[in-house]
């Protein structure tokens, strides 16, 4: 009984639920913005890594390696707390989105690269032999096929980004986790934290299930 009152205190949950929902909204705003920006950045990085002129592929590789190595929390704290020392000041929202996007773009780039490299060489040759420009070859022939391959890993990456938005609470962003910890302090009861955890699971479980299904389906498709 004590346990229920401590962790699953329904009156407290009801009281704090609006707060948690406002936190969820912020979490989704940060997550969706970072996912979209990360997809665009990642595709760009993958293309310049594969086809860029001169030193561009190498620079792209360096970027990807660095941002896959750096812990997101460290990056976020640098963006929010260190950059102001050189006069670059971001709001908590922008700091969170910048840090998440920089890292997500690096992972997304590797996913796109793997997808493009999985397309048989003959598809490139057939496009070139028809006189298609590099841009049309990518847009009409290669990317539509590559995207099908990369949808499961991209969805996985989206899940990771959404989860990592919780780190934004350290830069005073009123996201789901931050609101939950504040509600916990206010109510002197950890139920809001459990509520937040349940909301995260409810949000991400469907995505996890979708990835599993997509992987199964595309796995089947690959067999000739």
């Amino acid at each position: 009984m004590n346990l229920v009152n401590t962790f699953f205190n329904i009156p407290i949950l009801i009281d704090t639920f609006p707060l948690l929902l406002s936190g969820l909204l912020v979490t989704l705003e940060i997550g969706v913005t970072s996912i979209i920006a990360g997809l665009a950045g990642g595709l760009f990085l993958a293309l310049v890594r594969l086809y860029g002129p001169g030193p561009v592929p190498f620079l792209s590789k360096i970027y990807i390696d660095i941002f896959r190595s750096i812990p997101l929390l460290v990056l976020l704290i640098i963006v929010y707390y260190a950059l102001p020392f050189v006069g670059i000041r971001f709001s908590p929202f922008v700091s969170a989105v910048v840090a998440l996007t920089l890292v997500s773009a690096a992972y997304t780039a590797e996913i796109f690269r793997a997808g493009i490299e999985a397309i048989p060489h003959g598809q490139f040759e057939a496009s070139q032999a028809l006189g298609l420009s590099g841009r049309h070859m990518m847009v009409d022939v290669i990317l539509p096929q590559a995207i099908k391959i990369v949808i499961p890993p991209l969805t996985n990456n989206c899940i990771n980004v959404l989860k990592d938005t919780a780190l934004a609470s350290v830069v005073a962003m009123p996201d789901l986790l931050k609101q939950a910890t504040q509600a916990q302090a206010l109510a002197a009861n950890p139920t809001p934290l459990i509520g937040a955890a349940l909301i995260y699971v409810a949000l991400l479980w469907p995505l996890v299930a979708i990835v599993a299904r997509l992987e199964k389906r595309f796995g089947k498709d690959k067999r000739p």
Binding site: E125, A126, G131, V141, P144
Partner: peptide, 20 residues
């Protein structure tokens, strides 16, 4: 080069049709 290629049709051993 793309101009020349547009004037030169090619048929490959492995067809290389666009599967999508």
């Amino acid at each position: 080069l793309a101009k020349v290629r547009a004037e030169v049709g090619m048929v490959f051993q492995s067809f290389n049709l666009f599967p999508h």
